[in-house]
Design a protein around this nucleic acid. Structure first.
Length: 451
RNA sequence: GGAGAAGUCGCCUAGUGGCUGAGGGCGGCGGUUUGCUAAACCGCUAUAGGGGCGUAAACCCCUAUCGAGGGUUCGAAUCCCUCCUUCUCCGCCA
């Protein structure tokens, strides 16, 4: 959520250009103003009426005490009118406030000045490359063929027990998945290295089901509900029975561990000395992939359920861009240890996710596609998430200083399913076997080869 | 699922209709004193919104907030209703 007062009132030009760069409809600013002005007028009027009533009521109290009953009685009738006016204006005000707030929740974060400006992914900027894509003197297979032949991947039967975009891993395939998860977790939970600035994350096991408030906090709601799996809500029913207005909670499967992790301290004020807070979690992730029909239909690249190790940081504002660099390095370290070629790309203003101010994608080399494919996305959301939905996630520099919003960052470290794919494809041999890179062997009983 | 208790300012707590945005203690910050520490004493110690404000900070004023929402009243931390959360006991369960 943006700081409406600071931006709309003080810096409308910045707001306009940044929204444009992001591809927001051109009338966004105008609509925002149209919602903000009546809110401002109404709240001003309401405050004035309240002030008058408070003053009058106070005086009535004094009269009563002084025994001037008649005078008090007539004043009381007059003030009752005031109350009626307030009663009339209140629903108008809350309606205006609600509409403003709801609209605010649909406006994306503003891109950081260092983000390349452009309409879509064609304007993304390659930052660096690491490693050399492997050369094969045979025609490399893709992970589906490899997995089938090795009997470690079964997509057809998964379709039977669930549907499309699900997979069964078995035998060494399942074992490999588990090894990769543990490998990533062990790497990121190593003690912080002050020289390289790497690692030092606290391991977390979060809930896999979260409520709507939490999803508003990180930005998936209200705009992207279609991408989520929603659970049937038993609480809806019990609330309807007594016809109260209490908003029922909606439950969803998490699309990424970013959601529960970033929200852990929502609405709290943290001590400044605790920052940065760095957390890592392995979780399955659930995405409906609405609107991606026909995209990546083959194999494990795009699944409704996939495993991911996620990194989340809460930092001081002045540190967040350094922390984004080191978080990205943390993610890249996984690929370097496993000796998989990758490149880093800075997303352009038109390609940024909703909550991000700046994002690096890490793309791993996939021989079957002869290209680099996204395996991690590392973002600095600045204070956007910390502000949303009254989730005032803040910190105090010292006990008496005014609380400020923390900056939130997240990044995959890494997407395990895609890592599984990259490993099979990059380490395949002519006979269809797959070499296990050395760094991973301790996690898979010292196994050197899947065949 | 059944029964009971409770939710006030970072923490503990006072408060049964106006003098209460809210007293006391602890903690924290600043100061006086001091060779240093401690003690003692003094002061400060919520957040959000709106306005003064015409760049920012500072400051001032108003409004809201005593778990949440609603109601009664000229006026609600206090009375009424509903909900939420936490704790205890019983039941069930991986």
């Amino acid at each position: 959520m943006l700081d409406i007062k600071k931006l709309l009132v003080d810096k409308p030009e910045t707001l306009r250009t940044k929204l444009e760069q992001r591809g927001c409809p051109p009338d966004t600013l105008h609509r925002l103003r149209e919602l903000y002005e009546p809110f401002r007028t109404l709240i001003h009027r309401r405050d004035e009426l309240n002030a008058r009533r408070n003053r009058e009521s106070h005086e009535i109290g004094a009269l009563m005490k002084a025994g001037q009953k008649d005078e008090a009685e007539s004043r009381r009738i007059a003030v009752r009118e005031l109350g009626d006016q307030i009663g009339k204006i209140t629903p108008e005000l809350s309606e205006a406030e609600k509409r403003l707030h709801e609209f605010m929740l649909t406006i994306p974060n503003l891109p950081h000045d260092s983000v390349p400006v452009g309409p879509d992914e064609s304007a993304n900027q390659e930052i660096k490359r690491w490693g050399t894509p492997p050369q094969f003197d045979f025609k490399p297979l893709d992970h589906v063929e490899l997995g089938n032949d090795l009997r470690i991947l079964d997509i057809e039967r998964a379709a039977r027990i669930t549907g499309a975009r699900f997979a069964i891993l078995r035998g060494l395939g399942a074992r490999l998945e588990r090894a990769l998860i543990n490998f990533c977790l062990d790497l990121h939970t190593q003690p912080f290295n002050p020289e390289t600035k790497l690692h030092g994350y606290e391991e977390v096991w979060p809930p896999l089901i979260v409520n709507d408030r939490t999803l508003i906090g990180t930005g998936q709601l209200p705009k992207f509900e279609d991408d989520l799996y929603r659970l049937k809500d038993v609480e809806d029913v019990s609330m309807e029975l007594d016809a109260q207005k209490t908003t029922p909670r909606k439950y969803y499967l998490i699309p990424t561990a970013e959601v529960p992790l970033t929200n852990i301290y929502a609405a709290e004020t943290l001590e400044g000395s605790r920052l940065p807070i760095k957390m890592v979690a392995y979780t399955p992730c659930f995405r409906s992939e609405a609107g991606s029909y026909g995209k990546d239909t083959r194999g494990l690249i795009r699944q409704h359920q996939f495993d991911k190790v996620e990194l989340v940081k809460l930092t001081r504002p002045e540190d967040s861009y350094d922390e984004l660099e080191s978080l990205t390095r943390d993610a890249e370290a996984v690929l370097e240890k496993l000796e998989l070629a990758y490149r880093r790309v800075a997303l352009s203003t038109g390609d940024l996710g909703f909550s991000a101010a700046k994002t690096y994608d890490i793309e791993v080399w996939l021989p079957s596609q002869n290209t680099y494919r996204e395996i991690s996305s590392c973002s600095n959301c600045e204070e956007f998430q910390a502000r949303r939905a009254m989730n005032y996630l803040r910190f105090s520099r010292s006990p008496n200083s005014k609380p400020e919003f923390v900056h939130t960052l997240n990044g995959s470290g890494l997407a395990i399913g895609r890592l599984w794919v990259a490993l099979l494809e990059n380490y395949q041999q002519a006979d269809g076997s797959v070499v296990i890179p050395e760094a991973l062997r301790p996690y898979i009983d010292g196994l050197e080869l899947i065949k």
